[in-house]
């Protein structure tokens, strides 16, 4: 049941818990209890909303920064990662295999703001050996949701 609840919430965190209970053939209190447990255990970390900012009048610039790191003996990557997570401009940071170490997703109001952040904050950190900035031009799909308009379904209304 746990995993089914997680899959439902992952697609729709606003889902009605009464509906979830019906779908799983159980009581609302059971579902609520399970969700509370999942929250306490840190498995459910939050309920943010996916917004297609392109459709609003608010301008946002996002970028993916490849960060090369020279890790320090003892602390490894963790200490630096922790520092980077603290900047509110950083939307996501992942440790990667392959050609670079951290993938950092940044969000700012303007191109200049993002570039300034990279040059003055990220690059100047001890352990950061180099960065490559890629600006994101368009988002087609995010968090499993397709952001481009889908054609209207042509399914017939009644079929045997």
């Amino acid at each position: 049941m746990r995993n089914e609840i997680l899959r439902m919430l992952e697609n729709n965190s606003k889902i009605d818990l009464h509906d979830v209970a019906l779908m799983l053939g159980t009581d609302e209190t059971v579902v609520l209890g399970e969700i509370e447990k999942l929250e306490k255990e840190g498995i459910i970390c939050g309920y943010p909303t996916l917004i297609n900012w392109d459709k609003t009048d608010i301008d946002k610039v996002s970028a993916l920064i490849e960060v090369h790191v020279t890790p320090q003996r003892g602390s490894g990557y963790e200490k630096l990662a922790e520092r980077i997570t603290n900047y509110p401009e950083v939307r996501a940071i992942y440790l990667m295999s392959g050609a670079y170490d951290f993938a950092v997703f940044l969000e700012g109001k303007t191109l200049k703001e993002v570039s300034m952040f990279v040059t003055t904050r990220l690059s100047t950190l001890d352990d950061v050996a180099g960065t490559t900035t890629h600006f994101i031009l368009k988002k087609y799909k995010d968090h499993g949701m397709i952001l481009i308009d889908k054609p209207v379904s042509e399914r017939m209304k009644v079929t045997p």
Partner: peptide, 26 residues
């Protein structure tokens, strides 16, 4: 003729109707 057909014609006249009448996956 298929009994479905008759009902299909009826539904066709109501384009805004919500249908639970389809025998195929969504």
């Amino acid at each position: 003729p298929s009994g479905i057909r008759k009902f299909f014609d009826l539904v066709q006249e109501m384009p805004d109707a919500i249908s639970l009448g389809v025998g195929e996956p969504d």
